[in-house]
């Protein structure tokens, strides 16, 4: 029997690799995890592990201000291992009440893999003008 393929639709799925995101920033000897095993989880609508804690939209979706998921709305990892949509955590850190802390554990937010600021340029303290 002979089959002639006239045309086909290629469909690709993508997901953020939440674990790799951390490993990327770890010392070189970190082993990549075996692919394929973690794919079994079914769509679990309100699995808290799979949503950005700030907007509560899936990591694989995008923050509420974006239209398309993916590189335009990337994820960001903290050294504390917590993950958010980058746009969401920026919005939070921009508020005075954030005190520059991770919303999950209140440790000072440090983006994983981010270079330490040069000593002569300390991060500008955010000071809202307070007028009585």
């Amino acid at each position: 029997m002979k089959i002639t393929i006239n045309n086909y639709h290629a469909i690709a799925l993508w997901r953020w690799n939440l674990k790799a995101g951390l490993q990327q920033h770890q010392p070189a000897n970190a082993q990549p995890t075996a692919e394929g095993e973690e794919e079994e989880e079914e769509e679990d609508d309100d699995d808290d592990d799979d949503v950005c804690g700030i907007c509560r939209v899936a990591y694989d979706g995008c923050c509420p201000d974006c239209k398309t998921p993916g590189d335009e709305c990337p994820l960001i990892w903290g050294e504390c291992t917590h993950v958010f949509h980058m746009h969401c955590i920026i919005k939070w850190l921009d508020t005075e009440s954030s005190k520059q802390q991770c919303p999950m554990d209140r440790r000072p937010w440090v983006t994983a893999g981010a270079a330490a600021p040069p000593p002569d340029a300390p991060p500008a303290p955010r000071q809202a003008a307070r007028v009585a």
Partner: peptide, 9 residues
């Protein structure tokens, strides 16, 4: 109040 976090629901 002061210890609010956006992950609270």
């Amino acid at each position: 109040k002061t210890s609010w976090s956006p992950v609270f629901t």
